[in-house]
Lab assay of single mutants.
Amino acid sequence: VSKLITEALSVSQERVGMSLVALKKALAAAGYDVEKNNSRIKLSLKSLVNKGILVQTRGTGASGSFKLS
């Protein structure tokens, strides 16, 4: 899941990052079952932020906008 998230964010052209909703849409378009794996998406977002791979530009927790650091 982390690999899919970083790939989706690297393609994004948004300056402020990608919102959680837009990220879920991009994952669904890539063929990932978002409804079934919603908790996995949130956990991997939090772990990527803690590792310093992603930066959360808006919001708290697993909601808001994210971009690559």
Rank of each mutant, 00 (worst) to 15 (best):
S2R: 14
M18R: 15
I53F: 12
T6A: 02
L27R: 00
G52H: 05
D33G: 02
K46Q: 06
A30I: 04
T60K: 13
A22E: 00
M18I: 04
L48E: 01
D33T: 12
V49S: 03
L20V: 11
N37A: 15
N50M: 03
V55H: 10
V21G: 14
I53Q: 13
A30R: 14
S19M: 08
G59E: 10
L23C: 04
F66Y: 11
G52K: 09
L68A: 07
S47V: 05
D33P: 06
R58V: 10
N38Y: 10
F66H: 05
L20H: 02
K42M: 15
K3E: 13
G59Y: 06
L23Y: 00
V11N: 08
G64T: 15
K51I: 02
E7F: 00
I5L: 06
T60A: 14
V55D: 05
S10V: 07
S47W: 08
N50S: 14
K25I: 01
V49Q: 04
R15H: 11
R15A: 07
L68D: 08
A26F: 07
G64E: 14
V21A: 14
S44V: 15
E35F: 05
T57H: 13
S39E: 15
N50G: 09
K46A: 12
N38T: 15
T57D: 10
T57R: 12
R58S: 15
I41G: 03
K42S: 09
A62E: 15
A26M: 12
G31S: 05
S47L: 06
Q56G: 13
S69T: 12
L43D: 14
G17I: 05
G31W: 03
Q56E: 15
L27N: 00
S2W: 00
I5R: 00
T6E: 09
A29G: 06
K51Q: 11
I41S: 01
S12R: 02
D33W: 15
A28I: 11
N50Y: 10
K67R: 12
L9I: 14
T57N: 11
K67F: 14
L27H: 00
V11C: 10
S39M: 06
K67V: 09
L23N: 00
K36E: 03
S10F: 01
A28D: 05
T57V: 11
I41P: 03
T6K: 14
V34T: 11
K42G: 07
A29P: 02
M18N: 13
A29V: 06
R40Y: 05
K3C: 03
G64I: 15
K24C: 01
K46P: 00
F66D: 14
I5V: 05
G52P: 03
V34D: 04
T6P: 00
E14L: 01
V55Y: 08
S63M: 12
N50A: 12
V55G: 14
L45H: 00
V11Y: 12
L27Q: 00
V1N: 02
L43M: 11
L68Y: 07
L27T: 01
G64Q: 14
K67M: 11
V1M: 07
G61S: 11
S65Y: 12
E14H: 04
R58N: 15
A26T: 09
K25L: 00
V16T: 12
V34W: 05
L43P: 02
A28M: 10
V34Y: 02
E14I: 01
L27W: 04
V55F: 09
T60I: 09
V1I: 13
M18G: 08
K51D: 04
N38E: 11
R40D: 15
V11F: 08
R40A: 14
A22S: 14
T6R: 11
S12I: 14
G17C: 07
S39L: 04
S19C: 08
I53A: 09
I5A: 01
A30N: 05
L48M: 10
L20K: 06
G52W: 02
G59F: 10
K67N: 10
L45E: 00
N50T: 13
V1P: 14
S47E: 15
V21Q: 15
S12W: 03
G61R: 07
A29T: 12
K36P: 01
I41Y: 03
S19Y: 04
T60H: 10
L20G: 03
S12F: 12
L4S: 13
S12M: 10
T60L: 09
A29E: 14
L54P: 10
A62P: 12
D33Y: 15
A30Q: 08
G59L: 11
L68W: 09
L9Q: 01
S10D: 12
S47T: 13
T6C: 07
A30G: 07
L54Y: 04
K42C: 08
L23V: 10
I5E: 00
K25F: 00
L43N: 15
Q13N: 06
S19F: 11
S69N: 11
K51F: 02
V49R: 05
G17A: 11
E35Q: 10
T60C: 11
L9M: 08
K36T: 04
K36H: 03
L20A: 06
A8F: 06
V16L: 11
A62S: 11
S63I: 11
I53T: 10
R58D: 13
V21Y: 06
L68N: 08
Q13R: 10
V49F: 11
S10P: 00
A8Y: 04
L68Q: 04
I41N: 02
S10H: 05
V21M: 12
G17M: 05
S47P: 02
V16C: 15
T57G: 09
G17S: 06
G59Q: 10
S47G: 02
S63Y: 06
L68K: 11
